[in-house]
Design a protein around this nucleic acid. Structure first.
Length: 696
DNA sequence: CTACTCTGTCAGTTCTTAGC
DNA sequence: GCTAAGAACTGACAGAGTAG
């Protein structure tokens, strides 16, 4: 005899409570006083056994099947939660109002609805409501919350006022939305019919029919954030974890003023841009200028012999002026570096900028590289009042989905956005846009305008995070991910799937340690698997496919991926920084750092879970973690790993200093700056390429 | 017994360096 | 761009120990 009328809910999920099969006109009651017998700390099955025993003892003539068996939820024993949507028409109207007036709520609700509610097991209640059954492993909320959505958290000012006016007449409890969050307590089980029950004076049969017979969905980590937002609740985690969270926040926000660092940096960067103008106004420079001009006058009437001497003077003066400019430039650059690299947060800004700066020095490009589509900034600043929020959102979404850190985005906004923009004029808009971007990063399928190129590229970047590249080649799969990642990032910057850039530059712009030779090999593999097409090779030397002049990426949205990774693998935008060049840290090390940036702290086994595609992942990741611990990139606190907070560049410098000491100064200098070293090598190569080509 | 931690080895791949 | 040599990285394997 089955007491549960569905296979989707197992007996260890719930405690079974007897209720009468027919209420005979009475109001709802349970057949026994279950509360006296339940011991929360025990597994549900044991509690159910006790209840059954007590039931048989109390009703000696009855059998188990003479009762209906309903559910009691015990948050200590199971992560099953029921979301009870009451008064569904009014609820839906209220939700619609929130969605229309709060873009962040709109997106998060959409994801919540599509990814959880519509996919999970649900039951139609007799009042027309719906019970959604979900599993929430975090067990963040352990008490019943009736009317769990507080409207004033999602609306403010005039919007809240007009909301209240609109719903005041319909609903007494206007401030809340009638969605009950039930992790604990009694719930009428699916498949039951409460015969002849008295509900508010009416006697009727009340049926609980299964509406969606899918499996019960578990709340993934990404959805967890959305649930936290919708059912705003920050409590519930263990005291120790809460405390740690506060400590980490203190370190990130309290102890240093990131805003000041960013604005100081921008100020200095502007000085650097206007360096010529600034120098001209210094006393020292005025003096030199004066002397220079005087000599110039003398030159007009000077004899041939004198003019040689005067020209010598002139050269000396202009050299001195150049030196002043150079010194001030170096001084400013060092100050910027010192500012940004003083802490682990803003250091990312430096490392990302450095990547683009250094890459542009390889072939002495006049136009520098950007991290974003350059014309987007123009659009942002030129936008009319009504279009602003959409265009600014597009900018932030682009950087966010491509996994740029928030600090970097804030820096970009402060640097490039005009005062009229929404991001600058209302900081709350920027905060909200960043949170919306965060959601889209994890749920890219909800990006608007899917048919446009720029969204298509963002989708592709999201997809490549979950490709298991070993299906394409036995080669090192993470390097292939790096290659495709940099290609699509460049496509995003140019808003064009065609790439015509030197592979050496691409190597420098990548988010990891990959050289042009490997990029070339991967190009061929990608072409074979139709991810890249129309490669135009430079074949000056007997059809040897020396290097690609241009090639075209194909959107990954239509690509059929035979095997996906369980969890997306995010490559940090500052992944090509010196730290990666410490032996046995590498890309894996950066990916672990990225994980810790996103989660604040994780246990070793939680980190392993992200690399299960590697057969021997525990051993492999273990080694990387050990190295990170050895260099104090991460530290261990109560069995959890977290970033130590030491700037990564400082750690790398220390590593080089210890390795070379005072010996091998030349090698040390090279080692201190791996990207510069790469450029020197590439330049030397280019020199010989030209030489060979001239020979024929 | 299972899940996990820790150490070590090895072959194949990828990167750097030196040289032209 | 190319080669060669060597360093470093990567993921696989074996195996001992430990906690629950």
């Amino acid at each position: 005899m089955k007491l549960i009328h569905t296979t989707k809910i197992k007996s260890n999920d719930v405690i079974l409570i007897p209720i009468p099969k027919n209420f005979k006109g009475k109001e709802f009651y349970t057949s026994i006083k279950y509360a006296d017998y339940i011991i929360y700390e025990k597994p549900n099955i044991e509690n159910s056994k006790i209840i059954r025993k007590k039931t048989i003892e109390s009703f000696r003539k009855s059998k188990l099947e003479d009762f209906n068996w309903t559910f009691f939820l015990n948050p200590l024993a199971s992560d099953l939660v029921v979301l009870d949507f009451d008064d569904i028409e009014c609820t839906e109207r209220k939700i619609k109002f929130l969605r229309d007036n709060n873009p962040e709520f709109n997106l998060k609700w959409l994801v919540f609805q599509k990814e959880l509610l519509e996919k999970t097991f649900s039951v139609r209640t007799p009042s027309g409501g719906i019970h959604y059954y979900i599993k929430r492993p975090s067990k963040l909320i352990q008490e019943r919350k009736i009317g769990a959505i507080k409207v004033n958290l999602h609306l403010n000012g005039d919007l809240l006022k007009s909301y209240k006016e609109k719903f005041d007449t319909i609903d007494k409890k206007v401030d809340v939305i009638k969605i009950d969050y039930l992790p604990k307590g009694l719930v009428i089980a699916p498949g039951l019919s409460l015969k002849e029950i008295n509900k508010k004076g009416f006697i009727q049969d009340r049926d609980y029919r299964i509406l969606n017979n899918s499996n019960i969905q578990s709340v993934s980590e990404d959805l967890e954030n959305i649930l936290c937002y919708i059912f705003a609740q920050t409590e519930g985690k263990s005291k120790e974890e809460k405390k740690r969270r506060i400590i980490i926040k203190d370190r990130k926000e309290g102890s240093l003023d990131i805003d000041t660092i960013i604005s100081e940096t921008i100020k200095k960067e502007k000085e650097l841009e206007n360096i010529k103008g600034i120098i001209l106004n210094t006393e020292q420079m005025k003096e030199l200028r004066k002397k220079y001009d005087e000599v110039n006058k003398k030159l007009l009437n000077a004899s041939e012999k004198d003019s040689l001497i005067l020209q010598g003077y002139q050269n000396a003066y202009s050299y001195e002026m150049q030196e002043i400019e150079k010194n001030l430039k170096t001084k400013l650059e060092n100050e910027i570096k010192e500012l940004l690299c003083s802490n682990i947060e803003t250091e990312q800004i430096f490392n990302i900028n450095y990547k683009y700066d250094i890459a542009s020095t390889l072939f002495n490009r006049n136009s520098e590289f950007h991290s974003f589509p350059p014309n987007l900034i123009k659009k942002v600043n030129d936008a009319k009042e009504g279009q602003r929020s959409e265009i600014e959102m597009a900018f932030i979404t682009n950087l966010k989905v491509r996994n740029f850190p928030d600090t970097y985005i804030i820096y970009m906004v402060r640097k490039h956005f005009s005062k009229r923009t929404k991001c600058i004029s209302s900081p709350k808009f920027l905060e909200q846009a960043l949170r919306v971007g965060e959601t889209l990063k994890h749920f890219p399928q909800y990006l608007n305008n899917q048919d446009t190129t720029w969204v298509n590229i963002l989708m592709s970047i999201s997809i490549l995070r979950q490709i298991d590249f070993r299906v394409f080649s036995k080669r090192n799969s993470e390097k292939m991910r790096l290659a495709l990642d940099v290609f699509f990032n460049l496509a995003s910057i140019n808003n064009d799937l065609e790439i015509n850039m030197n592979l050496k530059e691409i190597s420098l712009l990548s988010n990891g340690r990959i050289n042009n030779k490997s990029l070339k090999e991967y190009l061929k593999i990608f072409e074979k698997h139709k991810i890249i097409e129309n490669i135009e090779w430079m074949d000056y030397n007997q059809n040897r496919m020396a290097y690609p002049i241009k090639f075209t990426l194909k959107s990954l949205t239509t690509l059929k991926i035979p095997k996906k990774l369980d969890l997306p693998r995010f490559i940090p935008q500052d992944g090509n920084q010196p730290l990666v060049y410490i032996p046995s840290i590498g890309e894996k090390g950066m990916q672990i750092i990225e994980l810790l940036r996103q989660h604040d702290f994780l246990s070793a086994s939680e980190i392993y879970a992200y690399f299960t595609d590697i057969k021997d992942h525990r051993r492999v990741i273990y080694k990387t973690i050990q190295t990170l611990l050895r260099y104090q990139v991460v530290i261990k606190k109560n069995e959890k790993l977290e970033l130590s907070g030491k700037p990564l560049n400082q750690i790398y410098e220390k590593f080089v200093n210890e390795k070379f000491g005072k010996k091998n100064i030349e090698k040390k200098e090279r080692a201190l700056n791996p990207l510069k070293r790469k450029i020197t090598n590439y330049k030397q190569e280019a020199y010989f390429i030209n030489k060979r080509r001239e020979k024929g």
